[in-house]
Design a protein around this nucleic acid. Structure first.
Length: 552
RNA sequence: GCGCCCGUAGCUCAGCGGAUAGAGCAAUUGACUACGGAUCAAUAGGCCGGGGGUUCAAAUCCCUCCGGGCGCACCA
């Protein structure tokens, strides 16, 4: 009896009662979701359905709750049902019914926790998308960790996910990058609007080494072109490599330049023109974004004939839709939140549904801190802390976990000294230790002759076992909720809760009997429970792409 | 001026309509010649920024004020 079964049974009961009382409202499984009461005296699962329905049925909530409780008490696997407070229905399961989950989890293995919320839905997840004008700095690191975990969570819910990196190689920033490389090569000072930093001279040296002829003999503008094309390629290769080190690999690297060269921009503008959302004014071509809630109209073709910035976004979105993606998500930093309105206006203008076909996830920026003092980073000034610096200081597991553990709505401070030195501050080790412990418990059990040849769930009677089973039962819903709300941090917080419940169980219940005791079914059954915990910890950590070590 | 995010234990943050608001770190005190003490138990610590409202029920939803972060280009 897992919470999903219980919810379904409850739905049947409540629908029957509501129907008899003349309700016309159709109830769904979401109306009868169960929650785990904080207080153990309130049973294993609780429902507030009676309080929610009381008003529309014009009955006293407690009276309705009693009616539901009476029927729920007859369900198989339910030990008792109580009505408490203003109308909570508290359900306590038979130990056997609750404990059966341990075996189910072991049998389902990696599949436990997966769902079908986005089964068959094509999802395009665009994140990081940093310009290849320098190494990926720590501001972009958060989206690498969060975006990749979100992709894994969508996949666990059946989504057909494409991880996409939008490579902004059309604008003036790339030119500045090329001029900076050239200046370094010619030993000239860095251009005023250029990029400084050690990496510029490194890249310049590698470009020169790769050039087949004598670069000093070609004209200056050709030199700059060489630095542009080869330099961007090298820089981008470095970015890909450090993201790969961090466990993040993209399916598609999309070049903005292709949109301009392939005619996709004109195509998108033509499409909007057909729909009547384009007009000419002041020598420029405009998108009438104000018709769709934006603050101002946006220039798609500037009066000098160049494409305006938004035209790339128009073409890119249309391209994604034409590639068949039903849902398109873009992750941006808070410094870009002003774009949301115009992107939604664009979505509506194309005849799509804002916030459904396109979603923009805004995450707060990360602050780099050293010795408690905020550290200003600037790619142009060369004071950059990179992804590689982070990995070197704290490792992939701790880095990813720390970045994904808090809500993207809250700002996080990264202090490399603290993260590197006091690793105990990072709860990832608490979770990983719990996993390592499940492994060593299983090893000890094996050498003491405890195996999984018997399973009697009714023997899982201890309070810590009941809490542990309840926590295990929640995992599928946590994954689903993380997907629905686009909040990977929920998986991390859940893993911590499960690790805690496991450690407390370990302290109270032995899997391996003491020296002079014989192996009983209770030990064999507990081994199933131990292994179930290990499996769920592995499944949860996998969603974050954090390793689940067998020893530490 | 307008818009988005945040204000919860000493610190870092969960909880975002439900019962007595939680965790880690820090503090104090305990627990292995018993499956790894990177653990566990216990104590202490809160007008959930202030004030209104909606609701049977508000940290959670609405309004307003205060404080902090970030944005409001024919730049990308």
């Amino acid at each position: 009896m897992n919470p999903a079964d219980l919810s379904a049974a409850l739905l049947t009961i409540v629908t029957g009662i509501a129907g008899r009382r003349g309700s016309t409202r159709t109830l769904t499984i979401d109306d009868v979701l169960l929650e785990r009461p904080r207080n153990r005296e309130h049973g294993d699962w609780a429902s507030n359905i009676a309080m929610k329905l009381a008003k529309s049925l014009e009955v006293n909530p407690r009276e309705l709750a009693e009616e539901i409780a009476a029927e729920a008490a007859k369900l198989d696997g339910v030990a008792s049902v109580d009505v408490a407070g203003p109308g909570f229905i508290n359900i306590t399961l038979d130990a056997a019914a609750a404990g059966a989950l341990a075996k189910t989890i072991v049998e389902q293995g990696e599949a436990y926790g997966r769902g079908d919320l986005y089964k068959g839905v094509t999802i395009n997840l665009e994140f990081v998308s940093a310009n290849p004008t320098g190494p990926i700095h720590i501001g972009g690191v958060r989206w690498a960790a969060v975006g990749d975990s979100l992709a894994r969570i969508f996949q666990a819910e059946g989504g057909l996910v494409t991880r996409e990196y939008y490579f902004n190689d059309h604008g003036a920033q790339i030119d500045r990058f090329a001029r900076s490389l050239l200046a370094s090569y010619l030993a000239e000072p860095t251009p005023d609007d250029g990029y400084a930093g050690m990496y510029i001279s490194d890249i310049a040296a590698r470009v020169i080494a790769l050039y087949p002829g004598d670069l000093s003999k070609v004209p200056r503008d050709e030199q700059q072109e060489v630095f542009r094309s080869v330099g961007v390629e090298l820089m981008f290769g470095d970015i890909k490599a450090s993201l790969h080190e961090f466990g993040v690999d993209f399916d598609v690297y999309f070049h903005e330049n292709d949109l301009h060269e392939s005619g996709a921009v004109e195509h998108a503008i033509d499409r909007l023109r057909e729909l009547g959302h384009i007009f000419e004014a002041d020598g420029a071509t405009w998108f009438r974004a104000t018709s769709f809630g934006d603050d101002k109209d946006r220039v798609v073709i500037k009066s000098d004939g160049e494409a305006g910035y938004i035209s790339g976004d128009l073409a890119y979105y249309l391209n994604k839709r034409e590639r068949g993606f039903e849902r398109n998500l873009i992750m941006l930093g808070a410094d870009h939140h002003g774009y949301v309105k115009r992107l939604m206006a664009m979505t509506a203008a194309f005849g799509d549904e804002p916030y459904v076909n396109l979603e923009v996830l805004i995450g707060q920026l990360v602050n780099l801190v050293r010795h408690g003092e905020p550290l200003r980073m600037s790619k142009r000034a060369g004071t950059v802390v990179t992804l590689e610096d982070l990995v070197e200081a704290v490792g992939v597991d701790a880095g990813r976990y720390a970045l994904v553990r808090s809500s993207i709505d809250s700002q996080v401070d990264i202090d490399l000294d603290v993260w590197g030195r006091r690793t105990n501050d990072n709860p990832v080790f608490y979770v990983q230790y719990a996993h390592a412990r499940t492994h060593s418990v299983a090893c000890n059990a094996a050498s003491s002759g405890v195996d999984r040849s018997a399973f009697d769930a009714s023997l899982l009677q201890h309070e810590t076992e009941s809490i542990l089973l309840g926590t295990l039962a929640e995992f599928p819903r946590v994954v689903r909720q993380a997907a629905e709300l686009r909040e990977p941090h929920r998986v991390a917080r859940y893993a911590e809760e499960l690790a805690g419940a496991y450690h407390r169980w370990y302290d109270n219940c032995r899997v391996t009997p003491l020296g002079d005791e014989s192996v009983e079914d209770v030990h064999r059954t507990r081994l199933w429970l131990n292994d179930a915990v290990g499996q769920v910890l592995r499944n949860a950590l996998a969603l974050l792409r954090v390793s689940a070590p067998e020893r530490m």
